[in-house]
């Protein structure tokens, strides 16, 4: 029979775990609100950037000698995967889902005889990918959201990526992150950065509203400024979405954990009470039988 004291200890330990998980849930909820606001606030920039780029790409992309950032290097031998996940765990399947998506892609590419390079954003993506793709990892960025998630962090990643691209170290670049749909649903997404793929290629009619643009100084010059910037912006967008998703995932994971702890406490309390009653009954039987023996 379980010892009463042991049961008591277990109940109190589960109770303190529950306190921690419910506090984490509260913190995640507060952070989620901020992250969501930030993600929403950044949308106008990305949207307008996309609109500009769309109309530029439509006019300049067809010319010979267009930037390789736009049309690619003409090869697809070496792939760079930017895997953006969180720095911390305890957020359900959030990190594993992103990593799984990236791992599947990497395995498929390797099977197809391509070279794969991986850039990890976030400590968890590095930790998980290091096991199977140790020699493919070319760089990592940690502490993404510390002290706050700023554009400069995305710019650092973008600079690294662009430097590698210029040095001809890869042909195609894809970023993996979790798109924030709602608190309970985050969708791991792969988005191709290089060569540029307009998300809504059909949005070209943006031209019709203002007619054909004049470019100052020249369309190639603007395009060569805009394309690298766009990469930083897209990475930033991925990071913001990821941040919101992470807190959403953590919130629901911690909610579940709190509920599970509650159930466990109920079960243990019942067991504790049963044991206590059994002990009392035993003692009574002992007293009675001792009396009868006299």
């Amino acid at each position: 029979m379980p010892n009463l004291n042991d049961l008591k200890l277990r109940i109190s330990s589960v109770k303190s775990t529950q306190k921690i998980t419910s506090a984490m849930k509260m913190v995640a909820a507060a952070k989620l609100r901020r992250a969501q606001e930030q993600a929403e606030a950044s949308r106008p920039y990305a949207e307008r950037m996309e609109r500009m780029l769309g109309s530029l790409a439509a006019s300049a992309g067809k010319q010979p000698g267009a930037s390789p950032l736009l049309v690619g290097t003409g090869k697809d031998d070496v792939h760079l995967l930017i895997v953006a996940a969180a720095d911390r765990g305890l957020c359900g399947g959030f990190n594993s889902n992103i990593v799984k998506e990236a791992r599947n892609k990497a395995n498929a590419l390797i099977r197809a005889g391509k070279t794969v390079k991986i850039f990890c954003v976030g400590r968890k993506s590095r930790d998980q990918l290091r096991r199977s793709f140790r020699e493919n990892i070319v760089g990592t960025l940690e502490d993404v959201a510390k002290p706050s998630l700023g554009f400069d962090k995305a710019a650092t990643v973008a600079d690294r990526v662009l430097a590698m691209f210029k040095a001809g170290e890869f042909d195609v670049c894809t970023v993996f992150y979790a798109k924030f749909k709602s608190v309970i649903s985050q969708v791991p997404t792969a988005q191709q950065l290089i060569p540029f793929e307009a998300e809504g290629a059909a949005e070209a009619p943006a031209l019709s509203e203002g007619g054909i643009y004049d470019y100052e100084p020249s369309d190639e010059k603007i395009l060569s400024d805009l394309l690298p910037r766009n990469i930083a912006v897209q990475i930033f967008k991925a990071m913001l979405e990821n941040n919101a998703s992470e807190h959403g995932a953590r919130m629901s994971a911690m909610d579940n954990a709190t509920r599970n702890a509650g159930e466990m406490i109920d079960r243990l309390s019942i067991q504790y009470n049963r044991t206590r009653q059994a002990n009392i009954t035993n003692e009574l039987i002992e007293i009675i039988s001792a009396k009868e023996a006299l």
Partner: peptide, 19 residues
Amino acid sequence: PGEDGDFGVLPRHAPMIST
């Protein structure tokens, strides 16, 4: 402040993109 010099934008300006 455009790359090639400042430009003023008034209503019905010709459409353009500039750095």
